[in-house]
Design a protein around this nucleic acid. Structure first.
Length: 434
RNA sequence: GCCCCGUUCGUCUAGCGGCCUAGGACGCCACCCUCUCAAGGUGGUAGCACGGGUUCAAAUCCCGUACGGGGUACCA
């Protein structure tokens, strides 16, 4: 898609002009690889421009000063039974100029404002439904509606693509746009909102949807972008998983669905798993290593080459990077996964008698102490034990060595762990059995 | 309440009047493979919100109803 991506921080409200909010916007953009071409521009630093526009509006008679308090408006409305918001009390009151007085836009009556929306077609609003809204607060600061109009004109914005929650504010901006004589307005596209499980708007305050959480979970940015593109849109050739460039080539604002979409974690995980599996061993271990640093998991024996060696069997077993840990922790830590150790042996006993488990361990200790130490021989040895004992021999050994009942194919990682550690762990498990 | 915007399998979607006995994906179920767990393979489950029109023909166009979302601030 062609165009210039302008990053504008709409922090006209002083509470929002804080670095942490800025980071909350820019960090995820960077993570996703969505680099902007111009900016960031901070509306909090461009107040004069907005104030100028407000003065122009005032001079041309499109706005007026108002010193009503919330309470006075409400009490008047209670008496008059007026339900349209602000009643226009100060319209003709000539409230004296004072920096501590608010300014409202004088919305015309009996008019229709039509906005052109690429996704929704023409949407018209009756101006009688719009109250005389505040454009400058009583503390002298402009509100975002003015800032929007001024900046869009000033920066030559051609496309405004944003959430549907802003659709209703658009006519207000358009009214000022016309009053300020800005000419051709930008093209709008109001995107459907994402909803949570409660079917409510998924956003900033209520649900915590910080993209950073996906990063710490171990979602790959490419997978995230791919999944996000699939919300509210789909390629017509049914091929869902594909690079951004390809998506961009097929994508069109016109094709976006109008209804809110539910964010499906399971599908995100699936797409992420596909991206993970597509990684080369080197790329995978590189990404995994960086991920461990990010999350602070630094086992004493962590080894890049080992990771790379085992990558394919790890890759096909995880759906997010966080899943790697429980697959390899026993290999990189001195001890097997502790939390499961004794109990897991008992669980085996349910499907295999305790005597059988003991027999398997005894034979394993005896034979693994002296056999050749490589993947093939280890496998043959363990399978041989299973045959002579007529049982499944892998499970008890797996639990003894890894501390878990499920995990990677055993033989290769056992070879890597080394005979000494393997035998020691087997002996310990045997001893615990009593 | 009022004003906007919506409504295709549980979820995300394809579909732009005949190709639809509605296609794909995730999930779920079954089977195959397998001395763990996965991955992979095969098959299955499930949907055009409802009611009226328009038309030779409607998931597709129009109107209602129901339901959902958003807005209704000196937040954005």
């Amino acid at each position: 898609m062609n165009g210039t991506f302008v990053l504008r921080i709409e922090d006209t409200n002083a509470e929002l002009a804080k670095p942490e909010f800025y980071d909350a916007i820019t960090e995820p953009l960077k993570w996703l690889g969505l680099q902007w071409d111009e900016g960031p521009f901070y509306q909090s630093q461009r107040s004069e421009k907005y104030l100028e526009a407000i003065n122009a509006l005032l001079e041309k008679g499109f706005a007026y000063r108002c010193d009503c308090s919330r309470e006075s408006i409400e009490s008047r409305n209670n008496v008059n039974g007026f339900k349209g918001g602000y009643d226009g009390y100060c319209r003709n009151r000539e409230v004296p100029d004072d920096p501590n007085v608010s300014i409202r836009f004088k919305t015309p009556k009996n008019q229709f404002v039509k906005i052109r929306d690429t996704i929704r077609g023409d949407v018209t609003f009756d101006t009688n439904e719009l109250e005389d809204f505040i454009i400058r607060r009583s503390n002298g600061t402009p509100v975002f509606l003015v800032a929007n109009a001024v900046d869009d004109a000033d920066m030559g914005i051609t496309h405004v693509i944003r959430g549907e929650d802003l659709l209703n504010t658009t006519p207000k901006v358009m009214l000022m746009w016309e009053a300020l004589d800005y000419g051709q307005p930008p093209e709008y596209a109001h995107l459907p909102l994402l909803v949570g499980e409660d079917k409510k708007k998924l956003s900033k305050r209520k649900h915590s949807v910080a993209l950073g959480e996906f990063q710490t979970m171990g979602i790959l940015p490419e997978a995230m972008v791919n999944y996000l593109a699939l919300l509210g849109w789909g390629p017509n050739d049914d091929k869902e998983i594909r690079p951004v460039e390809e998506i961009a080539a097929l994508f069109s604002l016109k094709d976006i669905n109008k209804a809110p979409a539910y964010f499906d974690m399971k599908k995100l995980f699936h797409i992420n798993a596909e991206y993970i599996r597509a990684l080369s061993p080197e790329a995978f271990s590189e990404i995994a290593t960086q991920y461990f640093q990010l999350t602070g998991w630094e086992p004493i024996n962590l080894d890049f080459d080992v990771l790379s060696d085992l990558s394919s069997s790890i890759q096909e077993r995880i759906e997010k990077l966080a899943d790697i840990v429980k697959l390899v922790d026993w290999l990189f830590n001195e001890e097997p996964a502790v939390e499961t150790d004794p109990k897991e042996m008992k669980k085996i006993s349910k499907s295999m008698s305790a005597d059988k488990v003991a027999d398997v361990l005894d034979l394993a200790i005896e034979q693994l102490e002296k056999c050749d130490w490589n993947e093939e021989v280890i496998g043959e040895t363990i399978n041989g034990i299973g045959q002579t004992l007529e049982t499944k021999s892998q499970v008890p050994i797996r639990v003894a060595v890894t501390g878990r009942r499920i995990g990677l194919p055993l033989f290769k990682p056992m070879e890597i762990l080394g005979r000494q550690k393997v035998v020691t762990r087997l002996q310990k498990a045997r001893a615990d059995l009593g």
